[in-house]
Each structure stands twice: as C-alpha cells, then as structure tokens.
Design a protein around this nucleic acid. Structure first.
Lengths: 194, 194
DNA sequence: CTGATTATTTAACATTTGTAAAAGGAATCG
DNA sequence: CGATTCCTTTTACAAATGTTAAATAATCAG
C-alpha cells in the first residue's frame, strides 16, 4: 500500500509536467516499482549498462565516478528529480558512473525498454519524457557554462544562490568535486566568504 | 530549386535518425527555409529569445557569449548538426548567447512553434526531435565531465581525438575558450605537445 | 604585391588551485 | 561515556593557469 501511495504521488508530479490520460497513468504506474537504498549504498554500480530510469521519491542521491583514483560527484538529485546515466542509457553502453544514495533514499524505478514501448501506444508519455529530457538538457547546458569560465568562488556562490538545499544537505566533500575543485579549495573559499 | 535540393538532403539525414512517413516529411519540408550567413556574421544575436530551430546545412557555426567583456565560445556545429540556444528555446527566455557563422554558412531554419504543433499530428516527428535532443544531452553530459576534472592538456587531447575537424577547421581563439582556457594557455599546450 | 589587420606564439610575472600532511570537530557505535 | 572513524579546516609548498605586453606569423583588402 505504501508503494502504491508513493507511485500515486509521483504520477501527480508527472501530470504536472505533462497532463496524462487515465490509461497512460495506469500504464506508467504498472511499470513503477519502489526501491529503498540505505545511506552510502549504490543503487547502480560502475560497469553496468543503465537500463532503468530512476526518480528520487524521498531522500537524496548522486552520480559519481572515479578519475585518477579519486571520486568525482557529477550530479545530485532530490525529491522528484530524474536520475539517469544518460550517456549509458541512450547509447546502450556500460557506464563508468554509479548512482548512490546519500541518505536513506526511496527511488521509483521504471524499466527503460518497457517505458519506450509505451511511447508507441501513448503519445502523451513520449511527450512527457521528451519534456523531462529537455529540462535535464537545459540544466546541463547551464552547468557547463558555469564550469567553462566561472572561477571556483563564482561557482560556489551560484550554487548557494540556485541550490541552497545542496549546500545544506550534502557533505562538502561531494560538493567540492561537483564544483570541479578539491575539498581544500572549497574550504578556503568558505573561509574567505563571511 | 537549390533550396529544395538542400531541404531534401536534410530530410534524408533526419530520416536516418528516425524513419518518417511521407506526410511527415512533407510537413517538415513545408516549415524549412534556408538562410545564408556570411563569415563572422551573427545568425541570432544576444538578447533575442530563441524561437527557431537551426541546423547547419553547409559550413560551420558556433554559439558564443560574453563573460567579463571577453568572448566565450560554448559550442561548435558542423554539417547536419543542430544548433539551438536550449536554455532560451525551452524556457522561452531571452538568451545572452549568440549564434554566429564561422565561415560562410547555410542554415536550415524551422520555426519552433510550428514544429511543436506538428508533434500533435505526427508522432514520428516528436520522436525524431526527442532523439535529437537526447543526443545533444548526451554530448553535453560528456563535455561537462571533461570540464569538471580533466586538465587543460587532457581536454585538448580529447578534442583532438574525438573532434579532429574542430582543430583543423576552427580558429584557435575559439577553441581555447571552448576548452575553458585562455588562448595563451592553449598555445603553451600546443607548443609542449610535439 | 604591399600595407594593414588579425591570429598565434612567446615571455615574465601574478594568481588560482592542487597536493600532502596535520590538526580540529562532528558523528557513530559499542 | 569513550574510542574510533570520518569530515572539514588549516598550513606550507608546488604546479597549473591567467594576465599583460610584445614579437611573429598569417590573412585580407586595395
């Protein structure tokens, strides 16, 4: 029952992005399962090909990978956010990235192949998904711009402005690599900004 | 007639991404116009809201903006590439970026609103566009990864590997800011790499 | 072809950011 | 509660990149 309640709320969220007919809603609901992952545990691990589309129902999560033996956090997801390793899912290639729960987190999981099949039957569902991908694309373009020529201080301040919840909820070691800097640098910046 | 020939070839390219019915093809063709822009001239200028979807038919183009009075190149487009200011088009907000022809360039222009209307009548067209946006999204995620923690040398070498045509065809001053570094830095890197 | 403009490289120095190691703080678990 | 572990900050120094200016090199217009 809990699961059904979660999925129902989630569908309402989707309906806000793109109005869906009852049949379409039911079709999506039929594919949704909920997955609970404990703090610091991986939902998807490095080397897997991403075949599932996840949304965060409750909690916080991140995508990370290793660069020269060090962890790099690429992305944070909060309630209702889509979390996928796009470069793997859309190209059907193994990912060198992992998805991890930062706190105890509940995900909604939708098998990608089965969702894509629904696109043929429900135009609305394909439209919904198109809009979701468009949003993710825009977010990524904006982050790219920030990484391209803003200084570390500017990037930190922009993050404070646009996503204060990140700075409140997420360990600084993850935020540092998300901003493309080391933990030491981030500490320096925080010490300098009163 | 020249225009029609261009558009026909372009439709074949689209058909390779997502097979389209004859009616759908004709509907798209009806929206396509070709635009010639001379070298170093802007196709779309800063401050405009992006309401047109462009593809490069012939030539090369870029997206650029100003950061602290200096030009930053965000994106390059070659033959058949989509070139849009996504953060403006998908959010209907004025863009602080411009689209410019690097050489004399022919663009194919599609009015966004009218294309979006076709989505209702032709499922295939919405699917095509979804796939195109997905590809752009994946490209952007990969660039983001490169900017986040690769050194300038690594970013330059990756560009050489993955997009040698960029280094061959595009002025180094544009490439430098595309890589998130200054022209001086790029020169140093090239001098060090024999 | 020549002068003028634009693009690229080089040099010297300043600033930012990284690295490694240590010290403080905070959270966690028995 | 106390000990352990993990997170964050600080310090000192090294490396990478930026800045400004000047020197070449390449391109373009007349």
């Amino acid at each position: 029952m809990r699961n059904n309640e979660s999925v129902y709320q989630f569908l309402e969220h989707l309906n806000g992005i793109q109005p869906l007919g009852l049949e379409a809603k039911n079709a999506i609901a039929g594919l949704c399962t909920t997955v609970r992952i404990n703090k610091n545990k991986d939902l998807q691990s490095i080397g897997q090909t991403c075949k599932t589309i996840y949304f965060v129902k409750e909690g916080t999560a991140r995508i990370y990978y290793y660069k020269d033996g060090k962890e790099v956090t690429e992305f944070f997801a909060f309630e209702n956010d889509l979390i996928i390793r796009a470069e793997s899912l859309f190209a059907s290639m193994p990912s060198h990235k992992a998805i991890q729960a930062i706190n105890d987190t509940i995900f909604i999981a939708i098998p990608a192949e089965q969702l894509f099949l629904l696109f043929d039957r429900f135009h609305d569902i394909e439209r919904l998904f198109r809009k979701i991908v468009e949003r993710s694309y825009v977010d990524t373009v904006n982050r790219l711009e920030s990484l391209q020529f803003n200084s570390a201080v500017e990037r930190y301040n922009l993050l404070l402005q646009h996503s204060p919840e990140v700075v409140r909820k997420i360990p600084l070691k993850y935020i540092a690599s998300f901003l493309g800097i080391t933990q030491v640098s981030l500490s320096r910046i925080r010490a300098a900004t009163p």
